[in-house]
Amino acid sequence: MRAPISDLPVAFEQASLRAGAVNIVSDLDLTLGAGSPTILFGPNGSGKTTLLRLAMGLVAPTSGRISWGGRAEPGERLAMVFQRPVMLRRTAAANVAYALRAHDDRRVAELLDRVGLAHVAGRPARKLSGGEQQRLALARALARDPEILFLDEPTASLDPAATKAVEDIVRAVAASGVKIVMATHDIGQARRLAGDVVFLARGRLVERAAAATFFTAPATPEAAAFLLGDLVI
């Protein structure tokens, strides 16, 4: 069942998050609308995770505002996969069932199949490998039938094979019409998945461009330096 109201676009207007004297993100103006995956790109500590947490409604900006489909409160059809997802102490299948709005064994099986985990449905989620846990987190997020899926460096600690499995799922989810907003600091991954790129550094939005433009002709010196592999702090 689809909720009638949409959370898109997610619009940041001069949104800042300050912790004590430190600005974690500053004066963000950004609109995330439907379409191809948006990759939040930038070095560690650039504010990618914080941007996702703000967009998910997990924290409120200390100044400025964020709206979801023109409303001040986030709706039901947002989902997020964390860098280190928490596996509930129960089976893989039960973890997916937990996120469903109504009990539905067929849907659980379908979702597990979608992320290639049908064969571990009955195993305790905490006993799964890192890659499997990340895919289970994806299935759990998809169980919410999201319109937007936020992903915070979901492959940061995974090997190439597990990374590919996650990227394949993300690509398939994007193709099914779900808006993907994913943070990464991996240039290869950004190239592979991005429709457009939001480049962040030191808590500020430095550049936003279509992927093709961003990777071939970055407009800002910070983005150019980062793409060349220079250390952008």
Partner: peptide, 23 residues
């Protein structure tokens, strides 16, 4: 440990209590 995940899953307060007791 669970706060972000359960908040992202939009879990109701009563269910949070049950979930945390179980886990």
């Amino acid at each position: 440990e669970y706060r972000d995940e359960l908040t992202a899953l939009r879990v109701t307060p009563a269910r949070r209590v049950a979930t945390l007791l179980w886990d």
